[in-house]
Simulated assay, not measured.
Amino acid sequence: MAAESSSGTTPILVLHKVAEILNCFSVEEPDPTLQQIVRLTGLPPSTCQRLVQNLVREGFLDRDGDRYRIGIGLVRWATPGTLGLDVVRLVRPVLQDLRDETGETACFYVRDGAFRTVVAVAETRHVVMRPFMVGQVMPIHAGAPGKIFLAFDPEARDALVGSSLDRFTQFTPQSLELLDAQSQQAQEMGYFAAFGERHEDVGSISAPVFNHTGQLAGVIGLGFPTQRVGPDDVERLGPIVARSGRAASNALGYATTP
């Protein structure tokens, strides 16, 4: 029986051995031989050979003569996580520029069903602020970012059909018809501003970010207290947010803006 680790869980020894084998592959040494893997892992040769053969069979490793490489199966599993990290990494400088130009908190959102999640933040330096945190989840029917999802993501509206449009303030949209009209306005303007829809003292201005295939990758936008930014500021800030959306889209490989 395996001994318990310091975290209180029992390690699965075969997974540890597989991890030791996969750790033998690197950019500097992408195709080690079986003998090199045995030497680097310290595993018994028969055990190492059996595990390597199983990894080849499952597509986690490829064999070319007496050398092995990371297989397409493992690459395919890793791709979604890699893409997510790339999007955040590429968008973050645009968020920081948007924060510096406007003085307000800049966020990047992705959608999951009828909700949006903050995945990157450049926080305002103002003392008076409304905190936005990575991992924060909010409904898409309330606030400016949701209108952008509804305008440019064909599946966003379907996610709202049949769901309850919870009312947070007197300004929270309560019908799909109103949301349709707002999303149409967002399409025409290229950005959208909302005030007091989720919290009465909070406003937001958002714009779309597209990936290299032309699909909506997420939504970029500003969040701010309404005591500092009001409807009279939208004409000035809206085009700035839209320009940041285009810059983020270009960073993701999208050449033009629809």
Rank of each mutant, 00 (worst) to 15 (best):
D153A: 10
Q184D: 13
P258H: 11
R243F: 13
R111S: 06
L40I: 03
R236V: 15
R111L: 05
V91I: 12
P145E: 00
R157G: 10
V134Y: 05
L98E: 02
N250G: 03
S204T: 15
V202I: 09
H16P: 01
L178R: 11
A251I: 02
E58H: 12
G73W: 02
R57I: 12
V38G: 08
D97I: 08
L216Y: 03
Y109G: 04
C48D: 03
D233L: 05
F152C: 01
Q184F: 14
T257F: 04
L150C: 04
V18S: 05
G218N: 11
P45R: 13
E20A: 15
E177F: 07
D201N: 12
R63H: 08
T213E: 00
G203D: 13
L165C: 08
P45Q: 15
P258D: 13
S26K: 12
F132I: 00
F171L: 13
H126Y: 13
T9W: 06
V75G: 01
V229Y: 04
G42T: 08
P80R: 00
G81F: 15
T33V: 12
V161W: 08
Y109M: 02
Y191G: 11
D86M: 08
P208L: 09
S46M: 02
P139I: 00
R130H: 11
A251S: 13
L95Y: 01
T82L: 02
I148M: 05
L216M: 10
A181M: 14
D100P: 03
